[in-house]
């Protein structure tokens, strides 16, 4: 690990999927965790929003001495103030979640930051392996637990995937005592958002298995067909080797053994 990299983790207010209550956002928590792992000393955790939000104490409870808040109204556009903040900071690595859990959750913020700062962006990072000589080796999370190694030059922005190390437990005491640095910034209103209509999510109709059967018999068959997986094959009397072969063939067929 390098002697010192300046890491900034951006955090937002999450939303619990079941209760809808505010919480430490899953991925943002991981972004802080990754930041803590890179350098506990030179990590700055930044939130653009309401400094009174109690959830911020949950981030602070991960062992942060302080947390920087750029005050913003709920309908504010965090982008310009974050760009200003990052320009004036000496940040070399900026970590964010992939998508926020509240608001638009578009996931655009890190890309816009990268664009405006002219920094590269690495998406869905699982781990930052090394940082040396102005470049970092990072592992990107691919589906099914696969990883891709990418080298990126500093400074850069990384979005942190759910595959990254889980955020450590937040402790009540340190969270309570952490110091909040509330900076004085101008807020910019997000105009476009005002024109949107926002409503509770309607359940999406599940796509029915539309059977493009040309004949009645085909339709009948499609409707009554046994669901896949029902009633499998049972092998009893074959030899162990034959049974193993049958299993192995299935593994090959499903391409899990390649």
């Amino acid at each position: 690990m390098p002697p010192k990299v300046n890491v900034v983790s951006l955090v937002s207010i999450g939303r619990h999927p079941q209760s809808g209550r505010s919480r430490r956002a899953e991925q943002d928590g991981r972004a802080v965790e990754l930041g803590l792992k890179l350098s506990k000393k030179s990590l700055t955790v930044v939130h653009a929003g309401d400094a009174q939000e109690p959830v911020l104490r949950q981030y602070a409870g991960m062992g942060l001495d302080s947390l920087t808040v750029l005050p913003q109204p709920a309908d504010g556009d965090a982008l310009p103030i974050l760009v200003d903040f990052l320009k004036s900071s000496k940040a070399q690595v900026v970590l964010t979640g992939v998508r926020a859990e509240s608001g638009e959750s578009s996931g655009m913020l890190p890309y816009l930051l990268a664009e405006q700062l002219g920094w590269p962006l690495v998406p869905r990072v699982a781990e930052i392996l090394t940082i040396k000589q102005g470049a970092a080796e990072v592992l990107l999370a691919l589906p099914r637990g696969q990883r891709r190694s990418v080298i990126v030059s500093l400074p850069f922005i990384a979005t942190v995937d759910n595959a990254a190390a889980e955020a450590r437990q937040t402790a009540f005491g340190p969270g309570l005592r952490a110091d909040f640095k509330v900076l004085d910034v101008n807020s910019v209103k997000d105009e476009a958002m005002a024109t949107w209509q926002i409503s509770a999510a309607k359940p999406r109709p599940k796509r029915l298995k539309v059977v493009k059967a040309k004949t009645a018999a085909d339709r009948m068959k499609a409707a009554t067909a046994k669901p896949v997986g029902g009633g499998g094959k049972v092998m009893k009397n074959e030899t162990a080797a034959e049974k193993a072969q049958a299993i192995f063939d299935l593994l090959l067929e499903e391409k899990v053994v390649r």
Partner: peptide
């Protein structure tokens, strides 16, 4: 489109 981690619908142009 879905927003706020899938909990709301946003309609727009």
């Amino acid at each position: 489109s879905r927003g706020a981690s899938g909990s709301c619908d946003i309609s727009r142009e």
